[in-house]
Design a protein around this nucleic acid. Sequence first.
DNA 1: TATGAATGAGCCTTCATTCAT
DNA 2: TATGAATGAAGGCTCATTCAT
Lengths: 195, 195, 195, 195
Amino acid sequence: MSKGEETKRFIIEKAAPLFNTKGIVGTAMSDIMEATKLSKGSLYVHFENKDILAESAVDYNMEKLSTQLFNNLSNFKTAKDKLYAYLDFFIDPTQPAVTGGCPMINFGTEADDTNELIKNKVNKMVIKSQKFLSDIIKVGIDNGEFKPDWNPDDFATMMFAMVEGGILICRVAGSNDKMKVINVNLKKMIAVQIL
Amino acid sequence: MSKGEETKRFIIEKAAPLFNTKGIVGTAMSDIMEATKLSKGSLYVHFENKDILAESAVDYNMEKLSTQLFNNLSNFKTAKDKLYAYLDFFIDPTQPAVTGGCPMINFGTEADDTNELIKNKVNKMVIKSQKFLSDIIKVGIDNGEFKPDWNPDDFATMMFAMVEGGILICRVAGSNDKMKVINVNLKKMIAVQIL
Amino acid sequence: MSKGEETKRFIIEKAAPLFNTKGIVGTAMSDIMEATKLSKGSLYVHFENKDILAESAVDYNMEKLSTQLFNNLSNFKTAKDKLYAYLDFFIDPTQPAVTGGCPMINFGTEADDTNELIKNKVNKMVIKSQKFLSDIIKVGIDNGEFKPDWNPDDFATMMFAMVEGGILICRVAGSNDKMKVINVNLKKMIAVQIL
Amino acid sequence: MSKGEETKRFIIEKAAPLFNTKGIVGTAMSDIMEATKLSKGSLYVHFENKDILAESAVDYNMEKLSTQLFNNLSNFKTAKDKLYAYLDFFIDPTQPAVTGGCPMINFGTEADDTNELIKNKVNKMVIKSQKFLSDIIKVGIDNGEFKPDWNPDDFATMMFAMVEGGILICRVAGSNDKMKVINVNLKKMIAVQIL
DNA sequence: TATGAATGAGCCTTCATTCAT
DNA sequence: TATGAATGAAGGCTCATTCAT
């Protein structure tokens, strides 16, 4: 990585948690100056404007979440264990894997009516997440772990939605009580599909 | 209603969709001036500052959603029909009952890390929403509509979370396809509890 | 006094200490609303605008000081005792007779470059104050209390100036130590003129 | 001096007479924009806020007065000549050495009840001024110019107070007549102490 | 006489961005 | 590549004043 790429990466790493916590509109370039200890000019050397930096930060946050989740799940072999691990990964939204919480719900709700580009970025990740889950289920069906008549796409959507909704509930509550409920019940719904 | 209260109400009505669409930070007092055709000074006659106006707008949006939902459900008599009506009420997040979409997910995600007061307001509404659903289920159990061993609180949390997650999915997708999936599957989950 | 005159007087009484403490520019009509618990419109019924109210307040503050000083000195008979009483009246600028301190130094310094009308009001009072002192001395000379070659006008100016300067010193110091010095030394200067 | 320091200095130089003439509250950032021909943003590059700029301006005005006085007095050798020169330096308050007049009386009266920081700044300068005068007297006593039983601290306070009071009288009068009186009489009080 | 809603200019400050060095 | 001075539009808010009631 060249010096320039290194600095660019450094800026994104420092900016990402700010954007994910305070929102895109709520984060000022001066906040990022402070976090990076870089000059105003330096930021603009690496990013044409705030929007482009914000986009990079959104990508970074989503990739970081994705990577951590993927690494975590790679420890598990069976489809059932992977699904359970997914649920356990999101067990406490007050202690999120990515500072500020799930970037999909954060940037999705901020951008849906105001920023087409970010909205589309989030949409892709939302689709990818559901596909990630349904693929696990499909493998589970193919290798005889799960009942063959289980609908992988539908359950992936339900599971994804329920977890995201659970994140909302828990973050405003400041407690993960309700995510525990969701965790237990989704595991039950999975368990009944096991052969 | 006095002249002052009328104007105050008028300002809230005009400001509420702005805040729910652009966010609190993303909405400027000048946006509200334009929407109300009132002068800057006039806005401050009725609201001490932007935060207080924003709080009123958050309340208004949540009450509006609440009222519309309540009125809609009052058309239905059985617990099952009420639950189905709830799901149908949220069937298309791209055409929301309240401009800007669900205020709980919008303001909840904006405020969770930055605005304690709004966060608590949303939390109360989130709790109330789950209680609203679990109360319907409890009545259904009491009057013999549903199986007595069904857990009302757990299902209310799951249903609420899934709908909110579905709203996120659909709003970034610009389509309600996935909400239809959620709608169908939640109805199935309800149906199996019917005696 | 009619109702209108009474309210007008009431407003001045409440506004005077505000203007004398925070200055004319530093005092807002809203400060006066708060202090009087009167409505904005009511203030403007009695005073055409802020400047006119400020002028009344300046007058009131100076008259109040004047009256208190005059009443205080009327307890004393000899010219010497009157001069001493004057000095004692101003002995502690941190506990001034008029809230905010001497209105001549307060409004004089604020207005000298910016408000001709107020400047002239203060000037008249400054002249009157010196005349008040020199008249006492003149009476003292005429009745044989003081040496006939004492210059009443010059000493009045010196004494007035020294007391005003002492007020400045003490108010920024938050202590009347230096006024005590001035008090003692001016009394000595007076004493040597006694026959 | 770096570019930034130069601009900062330039702003202070332009702002100082404004603050000293119109007062801190009475001077708007827009006045300083106009005086400097700089943009609003540029002002805030160099000063965090108006208060900090005002503090710098207060310092500048007091240092300017101090320096001019000091330079003026350095032309004189004897203690008597220095004291006389001090009095002559302040002979015409309508043509002050520092635009707006003596910053101690200007900022002291504005700040005494409203701005602790500025009040303390002025207090330090007031104390320094009196010490400056008493040190001259002490040197005069030590080298046999003045009578050894003269009280330097007391006279310094009286002289300082009388000059400041004289400034007030003259500035509201728009004439230095009374300062001439003070000048002559203080010189007489000094003269009688000469050996 | 009294009220308080309405006004809009003006206040201090922040913002994203540009550019000479 | 990096700096930080400079910009000016825009932000939230306050102000003195007006006016219908």
